[in-house]
């Protein structure tokens, strides 16, 4: 069954994730439309992925498509997604769905009114260890959850085509809005509820934060999320229940560790998704299935509202990290001034 689909935004995520997956789907690849405001970039994407059409403004294709994937810089998500929803076009939006809770809520409402699918690419929900944690927590296998910890960081090397996140004139929102959109969504998904923020610290100094720490509490559970764009953290999670503790690598495909009162053991996973390239195929198959009415999307937009609310709450109560190595200006300036 063919689907005319537009990919709006031909930057890093579209080229690494959406376009290769779509180009491999029969019935979709022949009708692919690529859109980017940069004419050179969109021409390159059209050639590379053999798209049937290219456009430099998404409004040119609103009436010509049956589905859209929105992968523009995050500050433009809300406006672009809304344009498609108004034309009753189903949308898969890159995370975060929007940069404010009000925008995200408006999009969810618009999708409901239009009666179309609005899904979000929170890919962590496809990762085997993250899925296993959700299943075990929801099934009560760990007992009542008391503590959740996530430590995710790597030296940032994503091949961005825009610098809109950074510095003067940037969004002022960095690693929390980016990686945090995954991590906080994992927590809300696991717990089935939105905890409250008890403390939020980051290293932004008038620009966008690169290191952040979120502390939270709710429903008898506390937790912490460490995020970094500047160094490699363990990239692990730990969920402590009053019966068992589950630990895993966020990118672990094959096993998690379960520790009870008497013993600790490695539990083998048998996931459908065994590598990162397979994640993108599943995400696209999931969205296309939802567009065709065959299933509910894995991550409906409504599901990510709690994590967007948490992110907004964090930014609303920002505290600076103490950074003694940064604040040495008085010592160094004594020689210069």
């Amino acid at each position: 069954m063919s689907v005319r689909i537009a990919v709006v935004g031909c930057g890093a995520i579209a080229r690494a994730f959406h376009l290769p997956a779509l180009a491999a789907v029969p019935g979709v690849s022949d009708h692919l439309i690529v859109v980017d405001h940069d004419s050179r970039r969109v021409a390159t994407a059209q050639q590379e992925f053999r798209a049937s059409r290219a456009a430099t403004d998404h409004r040119e294709v609103l009436h010509d498509v049956e589905a859209a994937i929105v992968a523009v810089p995050q500050e433009f998500h809300a406006d672009v997604v809304m344009d498609f929803l108004r034309e009753r076009v189903p949308v898969l939006c890159e995370k975060p769905l929007a940069t404010t809770l009000a925008q995200a809520t408006a999009l969810v409402t618009a999708a409901d009114v239009a009666g179309v699918v609005l899904a979000v690419n929170n890919t962590r929900r496809f990762y085997p260890a993250v899925r296993a944690a959700r299943e075990w927590i929801q099934a009560g296998r760990l007992g009542t959850i008391r503590r959740v910890e996530i430590h995710e960081g790597t030296s940032f090397n994503w091949p961005l085509t825009s610098g809109s996140t950074f510095g003067r004139g940037g969004t002022g929102k960095g690693v929390l809005q980016d990686v945090g959109a995954h991590a906080l969504d994992m927590i809300c998904w696991w717990l089935g509820a939105r905890p409250s923020i008890t403390r939020y610290q980051d290293d932004a100094m008038g620009g966008s934060e690169a290191v952040a720490r979120v502390e939270f509490a709710g429903a008898g559970c506390t937790g912490v999320v460490d995020l970094s764009w500047l160094s490699r953290l363990p990239n692990t999670f730990r969920v402590v229940g009053d019966e068992d503790t589950l630990e895993g690598g966020i990118l672990a495909w094959d096993a998690v560790r379960l520790t009870g009162r008497r013993r600790s053991r490695k539990v083998r996973l048998r996931p459908e998704v065994r590598s990162f390239p397979r994640v993108r195929d599943h995400v696209i198959a999931d969205f296309l299935g939802a567009v065709r009415g065959e299933r509910r999307p894995a991550v409906p937009a409504k599901d990510v509202l709690p994590s967007i609310a948490m992110i907004e709450e964090c930014y609303g109560r920002r505290e600076p990290f103490p950074m003694p190595w940064f604040d040495t200006v008085s010592e160094a300036s004594s020689v210069v001034l």
Partner: peptide, 27 residues
């Protein structure tokens, strides 16, 4: 921070702007 001199920071790739992007500088 030291002299209040306006800075234009140049990078070869946007991904290497993470550290300086924490400040309100022109990149």
């Amino acid at each position: 921070g030291l002299l209040g001199i306006p800075v234009r920071a140049s990078v070869r790739r946007w991904s290497s702007a993470v550290r300086i992007g924490r400040l309100p500088v022109e990149i």
